[in-house]
């Protein structure tokens, strides 16, 4: 029960400080007013328009990255030692390539529609996903694979019955990390060049000095992030049960 005290306490503190004038209400409007603005935005449908487009961009970029990154990481980590040696370093270099560096070039090539934003999200997500799958696949106990072979399992069933479950936790860690980062980068991308989306809403309200609206958008992004993370945590608990003897706390590394 005590676990759920801190967030409300923080919000009450915010509200009191702002209302009492201890912090300037012009810059830090009370929480209740921000929530009222958020509700107004939600009722007028404005919020949904921005939210849905951001969600669509984040999720399609994430899905693309997973489609490419999981097989890539798995092949490099599990099957081919020489391919791993060949591609490990270039991948590391590419993973340091911040998608914003070539943003304008991407726009030149792809136009100013949805494609560049989705590409940026996909690029950001690709690396944690691929590296997660790679280290998962490398950590699979080779004895298990050999045992599977000795029992005459086909390559496909070795993959689905042994390799994937054994690497599951790391795969999901990579996916979760990527999902978090996708939203970070997307908001920045939307602040730099977009006419819709939550990042645009933040920047636009800041530039027109509608601070309540700005805080409402900031909160909406935080809620969206929390909701996605919680949903994903639930999904990963359903799909990959923790090995016996490990609690959720120690599994975080």
């Amino acid at each position: 029960m005590a676990r759920h005290v801190s967030i409300p306490a923080f919000l009450v503190l915010w509200e009191t400080l702002s209302r009492s004038g201890a912090i300037r209400a012009v810059f830090f409007p009370p929480f209740s007013q921000v929530m009222a603005t958020l509700a107004e935005l939600a009722v007028s449908g404005e919020l949904w328009g921005h939210l849905s487009i951001s969600l669509l961009r984040a999720l399609s970029g994430f899905a693309l990255a997973a489609l490419a990154g999981l097989p890539l990481g798995f092949v490099l980590g599990g099957h081919s030692r020489s391919l791993f040696e060949l591609l490990d370093l270039p991948m590391e270099i590419l993973s340091q390539l911040n998608p914003f560096l070539l943003f304008h070039l991407v726009i030149l090539v792809m136009g100013i529609g949805e494609a560049p934003k989705i590409t940026m999200v996909a690029w950001t997500c690709l690396w944690p996903i691929a590296f997660g799958a790679m280290s998962g696949a490398r950590g699979v106990n080779p004895e298990l694979v050999r045992a599977g072979r000795a029992f005459g399992l086909s390559g496909v069933s070795i993959l689905s019955r042994i390799r994937l479950p054994a690497a599951g936790r790391q795969i999901f860690q990579g996916l979760r990390l990527a999902l978090g980062q996708s939203l970070f980068m997307l908001v920045a991308a939307e602040m730099m060049g977009a006419s819709r989306g939550l990042g645009f809403l933040v920047l636009d309200s800041q530039e027109t000095f509608q601070l309540r609206k700005m805080y409402a958008a900031v909160l909406a992004i935080a809620f969206l992030g929390l909701a996605l993370d919680a949903l994903f945590g639930l999904l990963s608990r359903l799909l990959v049960p923790l090995p016996p003897g490990q609690s959720a706390n120690t599994a975080g590394d």
Partner: peptide, 29 residues
């Protein structure tokens, strides 16, 4: 530890605040 358990949800919540969205707030402050 007790304080840690109580504050954990708040810290998770604050950690979700997007740094770019907050950048606007930081510039205000």
């Amino acid at each position: 530890k007790a304080a840690g358990r109580i504050l954990d949800p708040l810290l998770k919540f604050l950690g979700q605040f997007n740094p770019f969205a907050l950048f606007s707030v930081f510039m205000l402050i």
